[in-house]
C-alpha cells in the first residue's frame, strides 16, 4: 500500500506540473512565497507549498509567539503537547468528538485534534495554561472546585475551556442553556451535575464583579 502511494506521489505531482514543493528550510513561516512557474508561465504571488517534511512555523499561543518545527500533518494538539510541552489540552478521542482537547482559536472554542498546527498560523491560540493558576483561579475554576465538578480530571481542562467560552457569550445562563451550550464535551466519571452547578455559580460570581 505504502509503495503504491509513493509511486502515485512521484509521478502524479510532477506530471501534472504542480508547483514544486519548496523545502522547509527555505520557507520558514511565510506562506505566500515568490513567483512560481506553472505550465511555462509565471503565476504572480503564487503561494508556497510546504512540507511534506519538517516545516518551521510560528504559533501565537497565549499571547506569546512560539517557533517550532512540525510536519504539515501535525495537529495543533500534538504540536502543543509533543513539541511545546503544553499539556493542558488532552488527547482522548483524537477525532473531534469528546472535547478534551478544547482550546480557543481566535477566541472561539475549537477541537485542537482536528486542526492542523500549520493551519493555525496567524491565529490567536488560547489554552487553559493562560487562565488561572492553582493559587489564583478564575471564578469558573474556583466554582469547579467548589462544586466538585471533576473526578479523574482528564476531561476538566477541555471542559473549563468550553465553559469559559460559553460564559463569555452567555453571562446569565439558565440551567437548560448550560446543558445546551456545553454539548461538545464528554466526561466518563460522570461530573456533569457538578459542572452545571459550577457554571451557574461562576456566572453569579462574575456578575458580582469578582
Amino acid at each position: 500500500m505504502a509503495d503504491s502511494t509513493k509511486t502515485t506521489r512521484g509521478s502524479g505531482l510532477s506530471r501534472r506540473g504542480f508547483l514544486k514543493g519548496i523545502s522547509a528550510g527555505g520557507v520558514a513561516t511565510g506562506l505566500v512565497g515568490g513567483a512560481a512557474v506553472q505550465h511555462g508561465k509565471v503565476v504572480e504571488a503564487a503561494p508556497a507549498v510546504v512540507g511534506p517534511g519538517d516545516t518551521a512555523i510560528k504559533l501565537k499561543i497565549n499571547g506569546e509567539v512560539k517557533s517550532l518545527t512540525v510536519e504539515p500533518r501535525t495537529t495543533l494538539l500534538d504540536a502543543l503537547r509533543n513539541r511545546l510541552d503544553i499539556t493542558g489540552a488532552k488527547k482522548v478521542c483524537d477525532r473531534g468528538t469528546c472535547g478534551a482537547c478544547t482550546l480557543w482559536i481566535d477566541g472561539q472554542p475549537a477541537y485542537a485534534c482536528s486542526v492542523l498546527a500549520i493551519d493555525a498560523e496567524d491565529s490567536e491560540i488560547t489554552t487553559i495554561e493562560s487562565l488561572g493558576t492553582p493559587e489564583r483561579m478564575t471564578a469558573l475554576q474556583q466554582a469547579f472546585v467548589n462544586n466538585d465538578a471533576q473526578q479523574c480530571g482528564f476531561c476538566t481542562p477541555g471542559m473549563i475551556m468550553a465553559c469559559e467560552a460559553f460564559l463569555k457569550e452567555n453571562p446569565s445562563p439558565t440551567r437548560d442553556q448550560v446543558r445546551d451550550g456545553i454539548s461538545g464535551n464528554l466526561c466518563r466519571c460522570g461530573t456533569y451535575h457538578g459542572i452545571i452547578d459550577a457554571v451557574l455559580e461562576a456566572a453569579k460570581t462574575m456578575k458580582g464583579g469578582a
Binding site: 507549498v49 512540507g51 504539515p72
Partner: peptide
C-alpha cells in the same frame, strides 16, 4: 500520511494547486 500544505490567498492561486 505525510502531505504538502499550501494556503493560497485567492481562488486563482488555489486552482493552480
Amino acid at each position: 500520511k505525510s502531505f504538502e500544505y499550501a494556503r493560497p490567498a485567492s481562488l486563482d492561486e488555489a486552482f493552480a494547486l
